[in-house]
Design a protein around this nucleic acid. Sequence first.
RNA 1: GCGCCUGUAGCUCAGCCGGUAGAGCAAUCCCCUUUUAAGGGAGAGGUCGCGCGUUCGAAUCGCGCCAGGCGCACCA
Length: 499
Amino acid sequence: MTEEQNHSPNSAGDQIRQIRIQKLADLADKGVNPYPYVFNKTADAAELQDKYSNLEAGAETEDEYSVAGRVMAVRNSGMFIDLMDSSGKIQIFSHKQNLSEEQMQILKLIDIGDIVGFTGTIRRTPRGELSIKATSLTMLSKSLLPLPEKFHGLTDVETRYRQRYVDMIVNEDVRKTFRTRSLIIQKIREYLTNKGFLEVETPMLHPQAGGANARPFITHHNTLDMDMFLRIAPELYLKRLMVGGVSEKIFEINRSFRNEGIDVRHNPEFTMMELYQAYVDYNEMMTLLENMVSSVAQEVLGTMKIKYGDNEIDLTPPWDRKTMIGAIAEKTGVDFSTCFTVEDAKAKAKSLGVDPEDCDNWGKVIDLIFEEKVEPDLIQPIHIIDYPREISPLAKVHRDNDRLTERFETRINGWEIANAFSELTDPIDQRMRFEAQMQAKANGDDEAMPIDEDYICALEHGAPPMGGLGMGIDRIVMLLTNSPSIRDVIAFPTLKKRQ
RNA sequence: GCGCCUGUAGCUCAGCCGGUAGAGCAAUCCCCUUUUAAGGGAGAGGUCGCGCGUUCGAAUCGCGCCAGGCGCACCA
């Protein structure tokens, strides 16, 4: 945001800023660089709070430390300062007995929001607050703009997202969420590398968008003079790597982009983990997923029983498994395993109060009924298995039923958090699946996958049988941090440009 | 894309059956000087999201636009 947008001339904000710019000049007059290069910090706030937790009120020590952080509150004309670093807070006690006249002058120029370093001895005040009795102070960064109010903080949702740095300064919960996000991803990485998976990277710029049913972002490469697509999934490239055989177990954690609606569970760019393992099927993927997610929860939160909103969710494996058709039969009493035609399926859908108008095949009808009748009630973790062939163009046909595929989607709290298959490795079948997608596209399905000739070529060189799994990282983070919106777990969520 | 709600000082909010704006915090100056939402005093700070209309007069009423939230649609 530019200064012009943020501060109209003569506004209160601009006055505050002008006063602080004057303080920069005052500091310069005293020979102080308000933006120096280094500071020798010797302790974190939390470290000291922990180390001196048994120090009695009123006790003084000779132990000297240098701390640094952001000034969050000033009391008694600067005698007491709450200093916050990324670990926590500690109080600074600045008395004229302990500071030079020059230092006292600089103290007067400190504002809430400045980053300052203090050196001094540890004491606990008579009122019980652990403090650094300052013997020197160092301005480390003069802030020019005021922070939100100390009591109510920043609550305006738009400002929180647009100026996330302010949100983070003021709201400890936000900082904590992003630390937890980082830890979750680190633990997933650890889990997979410990199991022998190799982390790889594949292109984000694709000549055509594939690997999922979604509308892509289109961009243009000038020198090549060709349109390119931001990837909607890494899937087809990861399976090319499996053909190549760099490793029999690979994974990628990175961004995908989908040009679709934005809501509490969708951001145009989002983070997915996809993994592939040779010589196993989707059953192994279910086991791997539930073991991985539950152990990550255990490591990050110390428990497998998590709270999300009003729900208590138990991630302890094994998770429930139901076939899609079985789950529908259980919920509605209608058995689609003996229903073979689109017309028959549509008639059954209507009898259940579901409108199947846009469904042009059996599989889509089943999927629609599942979404409307079964999905909303799936709070506890569950693998929904054996999806219809028509809606699963990259999954191997089910070994016992050629109308279905060996595919599952895992749902937690009603959300799809993972999608996995026994990967389709038969190049002849894959070509037919792509052709069926092209037919769907011709019939108006603008999210149908285009045929990827090079991918088929890769399969024609021979891909090992393999299980593959995709997992939405943002949604896992939402669950493990009890965040109601995906924007709470993405540092800088996509927002419309201000005009 | 559709529906509902929101937008007033840097921040958090009043004011909204029309008479051109208030509080607390932050900031400024003074007092106080072992406080912790420190305290006391004084003064300052505003194109009331933007535009057009109705009206003698609009933060307030109407229409349009912008931005955000929630729900629906699409999707992971």
